[in-house]
Amino acid sequence: MASQGTKRSYEQMETDGERQNATEIRASVGKMIDGIGRFYIQMCTELKLSDYEGRLIQNSLTIERMVLSAFDERRNKYLEEHPSAGKDPKKTGGPIYKRVDRKWMRELVLYDKEEIRRIWRQANNGDDATAGLTHMMIWHSNLNDTTYQRTRALVRTGMDPRMCSLMQGSTLPRRSGAAGAAVKGVGTMVMELIRMIKRGINDRNFWRGENGRKTRSAYERMCNILKGKFQTAAQRAMMDQVRESRNPGNAEIEDLIFLARSALILRGSVAHKSCLPACVYGPAVASGYDFEKEGYSLVGIDPFKLLQNSQVYSLIRPNENPAHKSQLVWMACNSAAFEDLRVLSFIRGTKVSPRGKLSTRGVQIASNENMDAMESSTLELRSRYWAIRTRSGGNTNQQRASAGQISVQPAFSVQRNLPFDKPTIMAAFTGNTEGRTSDMRAEIIRMMEGAKPEEMSFQGRGVFELSDERAANPIVPSFDMSNEGSYFFGDNAEEYDN
C-alpha cells in the first residue's frame, strides 16, 4: 500500500510504541512475548500442572481467558453494579484439565481477579502490559475465525453469508486497541457500523446529549479505520460520505453494504499476525530463551520457528480426527482463516481442507461434555516452508469459486491468482447506482469489472525454506488448481455463540 510509510507498523501498534527502528520493534515485541511466557509459567505453578498438562491447549485457553477477564475493567465495573446470582464479580476462573488415573478430569478453578492481575503485572515488570493482553485477544479471535462461520451475524446486519472472507476479527472485544483495529476485516468494521446506525434509528437519543457526542466521535473513528483499509480513492470518498452524514440511517447502511461487497474484489488491507497460545510461549521462556534479547516478529519467520520446536497437546472428542484438529489450530496460529487453501497447503506441506470436510468441533470443551471418553493427542503445528504475512489485500483475480465463501483475504505475501467468483459478486451490483453516491458507485463498479483474471497478485513473492531466515531465496510455489480455494466452501461450520 502506498501510504505504508505514514502508518505505524503493526509491531508498533502491538507494543504501543512511538516510531521505533526494526531492532527496537523486535525487542519490544519480544518483551511482550516474554511477559506472556513468564505469566503462563507462574500460572502453571499456581495450578500445580504437570509439564504435559501445561502444554494442553484447553488449559492455555482457560488461563488466557482468566487474565483477560481480570483486566476487563468495563465488564468488571458492570458486574459490580449489576450483581447477578451466583456470579462473584471479583473472581474469575474456568475449567482446568488434569490427568488422573490414566483419565482426563475437569476441575473448575476460581481465583481472585486481583490475584491474577498481581501475577500478570509481576510477570511483566510491574506494568499492565496491555500489548500482551491484546495479543491474547487476537489469538482467540484468530481461533474463532478458523472455527466458526459468522453466517447468522452477517444475515442479521443485512449482509450476504458468502462475504465471510471479510469477517476477520469479528469476535475481537471493543477494547483491543490499535492492534485489534489493524486485524479487523472490512466486513467486521461494516458490521460494527451498521449495528451502531441501527441503534440510532431505533433509539432517538442515541446521537443526542453528552453521551451522543461520545457516540458520534466513536462512529467517526470507526469510519476512519474502515476508510484506511480501502485502497481505492472511490471507496475512500464513499467512506467520507458515510462519516460526514448528519443523521446516519438506511442510506448509510446501503452504502456500507455496497462497500463491503466491493471489497470482495477491490480488497481492503487487513493486517495478519501470528499470535500463538500462551502454552507455546511459556515452555520456550522456561527453556531459557530470551525473546527480548533475541527479538521477535509476528509477521516473519519467528512464529514458524517457534511452532517448529513446540509440543502442544489437545483434548480430542471420541469421533474427532486429531489431524483435522491440528489443521484448525495451525490455521489459527498463522492467522489464515480466509487465505486461499492452495497457498496454505503449499506452505504447510500437507493438504489443507475446507472447514466442512474437517471432523472436528471447536477447541474448547463445553462444561456439560462427558470427560470419560476424552483422549488427548499432539497437535501437528509444523510447516514445510515459511512466508511473510501481508497486510495488503493483493490485486484481484477471477477463479472458480464456491457456493460458500466467494473470495479470499490473503494472509501471506505469496504470488498467486486470487480466487473470487466474479459473476456471483457482480450480480449483486445491478441497477442500484442512484442517489448521492452514484458517481462513486459507478466508478467502483467500473474498477471491479476491469479486474483481470490473468493478473498475478504479489508478483514474484515466494515462500522460503525454514533454514532461509533472511528470506534470501524465494520459492514461487505451484498450486494444484483442481483443489478448492475457499475454506468455508459450501460450508456447515458451527455458528459462533458468545
Rank of each mutant, 00 (worst) to 15 (best):
N321V: 10
V476K: 00
R204L: 09
C279N: 13
S407P: 01
T146V: 12
A323Y: 06
E465L: 00
I197K: 01
L344C: 06
E53R: 10
D88H: 03
R118K: 14
A472R: 09
K7D: 02
Q4T: 09
L328T: 06
Y78K: 03
G209W: 06
A323L: 14
Q311L: 00
H324I: 06
R446K: 13
S345C: 10
S245K: 03
E375I: 05
M448P: 04
Q58D: 09
H140S: 12
T424G: 01
A428Y: 06
V463E: 14
M13C: 11
V190C: 14
E11Y: 05
R221P: 07
K273G: 00
T215H: 01
G228W: 07
E495S: 13
Q241N: 07
Y148F: 08
V463I: 15
V476A: 15
E465I: 00
A278N: 14
S170W: 10
I475V: 12
K48F: 06
K422A: 11
T215D: 10
I445E: 06
G228E: 14
M374I: 15
I57Q: 12
A286E: 13
T232Y: 13
M481N: 07
A251C: 12
P283W: 13
E46K: 05
K48G: 08
Q405M: 13
I347S: 10
A233H: 11
T6V: 00
G404T: 12
N124T: 03
P303A: 15
S310G: 13
S486P: 01
F39I: 04
S438P: 01
V352T: 07
P453G: 14
G394M: 05
I265G: 04
R400W: 07
A336F: 00
N370W: 10
S314M: 03
A278C: 13
P318S: 15
S287W: 11
S60E: 05
L381G: 02
W139L: 14
K293L: 04
S359P: 04
G228V: 09
I301F: 10
G177W: 04
G460Q: 06
T390Y: 00
I138H: 02
G431C: 06
A451L: 15
S376Y: 07
G185P: 05
I201M: 13
R436N: 08
A401W: 04
L226F: 12
K273D: 02
S457H: 04
Q58N: 15
Y487N: 11
L381D: 08
A373W: 10
N319G: 08
V183P: 04
T390A: 01
I301A: 06
M374A: 02
G349T: 09
S438Q: 02
E339N: 06
P89E: 02
P410E: 00
I33M: 15
Q231P: 07
N205E: 05
K98R: 15
Q42I: 03
K98E: 03
R117N: 03
G169F: 06
P410T: 04
L172K: 06
Q459R: 15
R74M: 08
M66G: 13
S28H: 09
L172C: 12
R416Q: 12
E443N: 09
A182Q: 08
G404N: 08
M331C: 11
S383I: 00
L47D: 12
L61T: 13
C223E: 10
Y487H: 13
A181W: 05
T378I: 11
L328R: 08
T151E: 11
E107W: 05
A260R: 02
I57P: 09
G485N: 05
Y148L: 05
T92A: 12
A233P: 15
F488Q: 04
R342I: 02
C44V: 07
W330Q: 02
Q459T: 12
Q241L: 07
D491R: 06
T171M: 14
E254N: 09
G177K: 03
V329A: 05
G212M: 14
A153E: 06
T437H: 06
N21H: 04
S28E: 00
N498F: 05
R199H: 11
R195P: 11
L166E: 14
N205A: 13
C275P: 04
E18V: 15
R106I: 09
F429G: 02
N319T: 15
L344I: 10
V352E: 09
A123W: 07
M239P: 01
R416F: 00
L256T: 13
E220S: 01
M137G: 02
S438W: 04
Y52G: 12
V312C: 14
M105N: 13
P322H: 06
E192R: 10
T232G: 03
I194T: 12
Q399M: 00
N125W: 04
S9W: 07
P474T: 14
G93S: 12
D203S: 07
G394P: 03
I63A: 15
M481R: 15
I225K: 05
N250P: 10
V343L: 15
A401I: 00
N417H: 11
Y78A: 09
P283Y: 04
A366W: 06
S478H: 14
A428G: 05
G126I: 02
K305D: 02
G490W: 04
M1S: 05
D439P: 00
D290C: 10
Q168T: 10
L266V: 15
E24T: 10
L266P: 00
Q398Y: 00
R208P: 02
R102S: 13
L154V: 14
I197R: 00
Y52D: 03
R117V: 13
Q399C: 10
M167A: 05
A131S: 14
Q42D: 04
D101I: 11
Q58C: 03
H324R: 05
N250A: 13
G30R: 05
F291Q: 06
L358T: 14
A85P: 14
I33K: 00
G5F: 00
E495G: 10
F230A: 10
T350Y: 00
G404H: 13
Q20L: 03
A373V: 11
G462L: 15
N395D: 01
S297P: 08
F338L: 06
T92L: 10
I265K: 00
S170K: 06
I33H: 00
P453I: 03
A472T: 15
Q409G: 06
E292V: 06
L341W: 11
L133K: 11
C333V: 10
L328A: 05
G249V: 08
N483E: 05
S467I: 13
F71P: 12
T171N: 09
R204A: 08
E380C: 11
E320R: 09
S287C: 09
R106C: 10
R204Y: 13
Y111P: 04
I253R: 04
V186A: 03
P322G: 07
V312P: 01
G268W: 03
K113L: 08
D497E: 08
I253W: 12
K98W: 09
T130N: 08
P83A: 13
A178N: 14
F338N: 11
K357R: 10
I41M: 08
M440V: 02
D160A: 01
R117A: 05
R65H: 05
M222E: 08
L264E: 11
Y111F: 14
R8W: 10
D372L: 08
A472P: 13
T188R: 02
R199N: 05
G86K: 10
G86A: 13
S50P: 14
E81V: 14
N224I: 08
D372N: 14
T215C: 05
A323E: 01
D480P: 12
R118C: 08
L418S: 02
P477Q: 01
S9P: 00
K325T: 11
M159L: 15
R204Q: 12
Y289R: 13
M189S: 08
E254Y: 09
R441D: 09
N397R: 15
M222P: 00
V183F: 05
E369L: 08
A286Q: 14
D16F: 04
A472H: 06
F412Q: 04
G132N: 10
I475G: 07
L49H: 03
F71Y: 15
E320T: 11
L418W: 00
S326D: 10
P318A: 12
V352Q: 05
E115K: 10
K273H: 01
K31E: 15
M196C: 07
R261H: 07
N125T: 11
T430C: 07
A27M: 14
K91F: 06
L276I: 10
P477V: 00
N247T: 12
F338T: 12
S367M: 08
R384H: 13
T171Q: 08
A234Q: 08
F39M: 11
E192C: 06
